[in-house]
Design a protein around this nucleic acid. Structure first.
Length: 424
RNA sequence: GGAGAAAUGGCAGAGUGGUCGAAUGCGGCGGUCUUGAAAACCGUUGUCCUGCUAUCGCGGGACCGGGGGUUCGAAUCCCUCUUUCUCCGCCA
């Protein structure tokens, strides 16, 4: 959510920047600015009426103390109309504030000045790449077949227990999953992240704080009886740790890492291209989150990109890093890097991480602020997060890329975690 | 799940209808003293909205867990929700 102050002072700039995201903000901004003007007018009127009310009330108190009952009664008469007027203004004010908020949350975050224009994924810009794309022999199998061949993940059993998209990991498949989680966590901790293990269901306030609510409730599983939501990513609980807090500048950046299962309803998009591990309703992910000083958040972003790159490199997967164009970026993001790994049997790039700087967009919703030493004013922090990493597609790529006639070779860095070096 | 008690500033903790944004202590910040530090002493110390001001700032309003009510006036009384604690029950 952009701040009202900023919108008030930068209308044309906002319109111009949002064009990069193919978003026309003109109408919304006009509405916002006119609502804001009425809001301030009502606020001023209400404040002065309240001041008058307070003054008279004090007077009544003093009169009663001195035993002037008669005068006190006269003064009371005066308050009745004041009271009514204040009430009617506050009702209107509340309505306008609601309306204003509803308009403001329609505006996406401004893309960073370096973000390229573009309509969709085809316009993303390659930022870096590594590893070699290689050809597999003709008899190479896609991961779904490998999974069946070695009996390490059972989709049908998941259907029995829950439904499509809830796989059951078995034997070495389960161990591999757990190994990856621990490997990712340990690498993050080594890089200075503090681990948290948060709840995986959250309340409405948390959903709002990170921007899933009110718009995207369809993407989340909703526990209606308690009005909780299953998290689509650890970003939600972890970032919301810092909701409604004022941090001190010297403690920034705060770096957290968390493993959680993630749940996505992902209505639509079924079919052959999402078979196997490519898209699931429940999957495992290790997430890194930073709460950064606005003057240094892009250094944090760079650091996070480097961290994720290190993970992919250690796993030996061919990868490329894309800078998303305006049209492909999320509503909340100012700058996003997507990581894609090469899945050799499917012959396609799989997105395994998305690392973003949200600048103060989330922070404004979260009311997460900080104060630099000596400063009187609070400022909004910048929030960033990235997957490090999302597991299923990593597993898919590892299985496909590392298949041999005698089995699937486990990357060396994982062997201490799996306890085996081959799935056969 | 049943019964009771409570929720106040960064923390501890006073405050049961007016002069309370809120005593006091601790902590934090600034200063005096000191070669330096500690101690002691003095001062200062929240958030949000809004008006004026180029800025420092000054004025007004709101905020004592959330929401609602009573009253001229609410931290204080009433209702409701949430959370915490104690006892009982159940339990990984």
């Amino acid at each position: 959510m952009l701040t009202l102050n900023f919108l008030r002072e930068n209308k044309d700039f906002v319109i111009k920047r949002l064009r990069v995201k193919n978003f026309d903000a003109t109408g919304i901004l006009d509405t916002i600015l006119s609502l804001d003007a009425s809001r301030r007018e009502l606020q001023t009127r209400s404040d002065s009426l309240q001041a008058e009310m307070n003054r008279v009330s004090k007077e009544i108190g003093a009169l009663l103390k001195n035993g002037n009952r008669q005068e006190a009664e006269t003064a009371k008469e005066k308050t009745y109309s004041l009271k009514e007027e204040i009430k009617s203004i506050s009702v209107r004010l509340e309505a306008i504030e609601d309306e204003l908020r509803n308009e403001i949350i329609k505006l996406p975050n401004l893309p960073h000045e370096s973000v390229a224009e573009g309509r969709g994924a085809d316009d993303n810009v390659k930022y870096r790449e590594g590893g070699k794309i290689f050809e597999l022999p003709d008899n190479a199998l896609p991961h779904l077949d490998l999974i069946k061949k070695y009996d390490i993940i059972d989709f049908d059993l998941g259907v029995k227990l829950t439904g499509a998209g809830f796989p059951v990991y078995k034997g070495k498949g389960a161990k591999l999953e757990r190994a990856l989680i621990n490997f990712f966590l340990d690498e993050g901790i080594k890089a200075g992240y503090t681990e948290v293990l948060p709840p995986i269901v959250v309340n409405e306030d948390s959903g709002f704080g990170t921007g899933q609510l009110p718009d995207k409730e369809g993407q989340m599983y909703h526990v209606t009886l308690d009005n909780f939501y299953l998290i689509p990513t650890a970003e939600v609980p972890v970032t919301n740790i810092y909701r409604d807090v004022i941090l001190s500048g010297e403690n920034l950046p705060i770096k957290n890492i968390a493993y959680t299962p993630c749940f996505r309803r992902e209505a639509g998009s079924w079919g052959a291209h999402v078979r196997g591990l490519n898209r699931l309703h429940q999957f495992d992910k290790v997430e890194i989150v930073q709460i950064a000083h606005p003057d240094h958040s892009y250094e944090s972003l760079e650091e996070m990109v480097n961290h994720v790159e290190g993970l992919v490199l250690k796993l030996g997967l061919p990868y490329r890093i894309m800078r998303l164009c305006g049209g492909d970026m999320s509503f909340t993001s100012a700058l996003t890097y997507d990581f894609e790994v090469w899945s050799a049997a499917q012959k396609k790039w799989l997105e395994v991480s998305s690392v973003s700087n949200f600048e103060s967009f989330q922070a404004n919703r979260l009311k997460c602020r900080f104060k630099d030493k000596g400063d009187k004013q609070t400022r909004l922090v910048h929030t960033l997060n990235g997957s490090a990493l999302a597991l299923p597609r990593i597993v898919a790529a590892l299985l496909e890329n590392n298949q041999t006639d005698s089995g699937i070779i486990i990357p060396e860095v994982l062997v201490p975690y799996t306890g085996f070096d081959k799935i056969s």
